[in-house]
Amino acid sequence: MTTPSITDPSQVLVKVRATSVNPLDCQIRRGDYASLFDLPIITGHDISGEVVAVGEAVKNWLPGDKVYYSPRFGGTGSYAEYHLTDESSLSRMPDNLSYEEAAAVPLVGGTVWEILVVRAKLKKGDTILILGGAGGVGTLAIQVAKSLGAFVYTTGQSILHEKLQNLGADVVIDHHRKNYIEEIQAYTNGKGVDVIIDTVGGSTLSDGPHALTNYGRIVTLVDIAQPQNLIHAWEKNATYHFVFTRQSRDELYNITRLIESGHVKPIIDSIYPIEEVKNAHQRIEYAMRDRPLFGKIVLSF
């Protein structure tokens, strides 16, 4: 391939060492966001790699620096050998991570900080229910929530319970065998939890308030098209937050500190060579039909 050339003094050229697969990548490929992304497009929203060249105005980065970040929406994605970006996008890669581990962090890392701290305002002593604890967002959210001092409930298949508990989940509910609302009501003596994080969709927005305490918060990452009956949210004085994943170097910086201090580690389900990107996408799309997904799917160069 032709290596991109720096055309702006604030640009940095990065050699991509690893990237990852996000549900967003699969959705873009299917054309779900046609109004935001013109196809065909090089997709991919996580990069770990090393700086190979810098523009003349770049002061904070040198060739050889290890970096990780999420490419900006609308531009060239991470499924490429090289990536050209503005220096303001870059974050220093944690010293205690491999390229593959680092590639599992940027997009979900910024997202998790956004949903837990910025939106839900999670604090020490809060109770939180993370729906879908085994996914890329869920596995990181459990760890960050525990680092913030919360009591963590999550849902996951029974085969994954031990792994989810090892991440810090205090209670794991098998949503295939039990009703999570009834379980939360039982565990909290009818009070409910302070925060619900929704990564699964369905009827969560309408059902969630039954597991929520008064003045609780629900944060969803799922684009839900069907109507939802929110009468029970009104009864609970609930607050809803709708989050479309975005890139934020400041939020990733906070995740970096937790990684370097040992409070958080990226969880990798599987690693594919970049040539097998099709298989990697199928892994995430058919996870429920095959073996359950646990963590992120990484693509290595």
Rank of each mutant, 00 (worst) to 15 (best):
M1P: 04
P4Q: 14
S5T: 14
D8C: 02
S10M: 11
Q11N: 09
V12P: 01
L13Y: 13
V14S: 05
T19V: 08
S20E: 01
V21K: 00
Q27S: 08
Q27C: 04
R30W: 06
R30Y: 09
S35D: 14
P40M: 11
P40T: 08
I41V: 14
I42C: 08
H45A: 06
S48R: 01
G49Y: 06
V51N: 12
V52D: 06
K59S: 15
N60G: 08
G64Q: 10
G64H: 11
K66I: 08
V67G: 05
R72M: 14
R72A: 14
Y79R: 02
A80S: 15
Y82Q: 09
H83E: 14
D86M: 10
S88I: 08
L90F: 04
M93C: 07
M93N: 05
D95A: 14
N96G: 09
E100S: 04
A104E: 10
P106L: 12
L107P: 05
L107T: 12
G109R: 13
V112Q: 09
V117G: 10
A120F: 12
L122D: 12
L122Y: 12
G125I: 07
T127A: 04
L129Y: 10
L129S: 10
L131C: 03
A134F: 01
V137Y: 07
G138L: 06
G149K: 13
G149S: 11
G149M: 09
F151I: 05
T154H: 08
T155K: 03
L160A: 06
E162Y: 13
L164P: 00
N166Y: 08
G168T: 08
A169P: 07
H175I: 00
R177G: 00
K178M: 14
K178D: 15
N179T: 03
E182T: 11
I184W: 08
Y187S: 01
Y187T: 02
Y187K: 13
N189W: 03
V193E: 13
V193Y: 11
G201C: 05
G202Y: 03
L205F: 09
L205S: 06
S206T: 09
S206M: 09
P209L: 03
T213M: 13
N214I: 11
G216H: 12
V219W: 06
T220R: 08
D223M: 05
I231E: 13
H232G: 00
A233G: 15
N237H: 11
Y240P: 00
Y240V: 02
H241S: 10
H241M: 02
H241I: 01
F242L: 04
F242N: 00
S248W: 07
R249P: 05
E251I: 01
L252E: 04
Y253I: 05
Y253L: 02
I255K: 02
I255F: 14
I255G: 04
I259W: 07
E260R: 04
V264M: 05
I268Y: 04
E275S: 14
E275C: 01
V277K: 07
N279D: 15
A280G: 05
Q282R: 12
R283V: 07
R283C: 09
A287C: 07
M288F: 10
M288G: 00
R289N: 14
L293S: 03
F294P: 00
K296A: 05
I297V: 15
L299R: 04
L299Q: 08
F301P: 13
F301Q: 05
